[in-house]
Design a protein around this nucleic acid. Structure first.
Lengths: 120, 120
DNA sequence: ATAGTAATAGGAATTATTACTATTTATAAA
DNA sequence: TTTATAAATAGTAATAATTCCTATTACTAT
């Protein structure tokens, strides 16, 4: 992968927020530095960074969100404010359980919990 | 809720498959009965049926899928064939744990597991 | 049966994402 | 340094997924 200042910027934006931003949010933020950056560049680089294991993609309803946290983890999503919080809920045990019960070879486990967060 | 033959048809389509179909799949199937049915009608009724607790919505990457199974459950998704299988993995305990650890009032918990299923 | 009205339908519009192409740029070899 | 070249970019068009808008229709009370 060749260097590009656009990719560096995009990576930096994702890695310095806990907001699980959407492509559009990242696009707006990136434009402040590179005013003619294209939305296609945002999407291309985000999926490239994801493929290289540098960032994670999570799906919030029908929108992709991007997460600097590449360690397998779980999410709490608040129905009131929409905030998404990273948590650790699942253990290695779960993977074994899935294998024993269903002969399913799990490579990723994600627990998504919706409800009301502690700010309300 | 007023009767409509479109909604009856849509409900019936969802309730007679285990394929976790997308809106588009349901649309194509529905057109065989009501040829001028609109995709908007599909979406509107699917979310209405969901709100009334008659069907469930699950999110597979950035696509909504619809499930007749309204009891809280979890999913195995095979990376090879794309098949989604309903399983039961989470327990009431998890909800309590989320409350104790994060003071988060969970109303829905869903464990999504990807990997290779027992057909491969 | 008819009129009133709120729910529903179909189709248009919007939003999110991907694809395409001409141009620019990072990198490596001469 | 210059040159070759493959990868990346901006800009735009296309596609996919979902929501919005206005005419129509099911249902209720007369």
């Amino acid at each position: 992968m060749r260097f590009s200042k656009q990719r560096e910027l995009i990576k930096n934006i994702v890695q310095t927020t806990n907001l699980h931003p959407t492509a559009d949010w990242i696009y707006k933020k990136a434009k402040k530095n590179i005013s003619n950056i294209s939305l296609g560049t945002i999407y291309r680089n985000l999926s490239q960074l994801n493929q290289d294991g540098i960032i994670n993609i999570i799906y919030d309803n029908n929108k992709a969100r991007y997460d600097w946290n590449t360690v397998s983890h779980d999410h709490l999503k608040c129905n009131k404010c929409g905030d998404i919080t990273d948590i650790h809920m699942h253990t290695e045990e779960l993977q074994k359980k899935v294998w024993n019960q269903y002969k399913f070879e799990a490579d990723n486990i994600e627990i998504n919990i919706t409800g009301i967060c502690n700010k309300h």
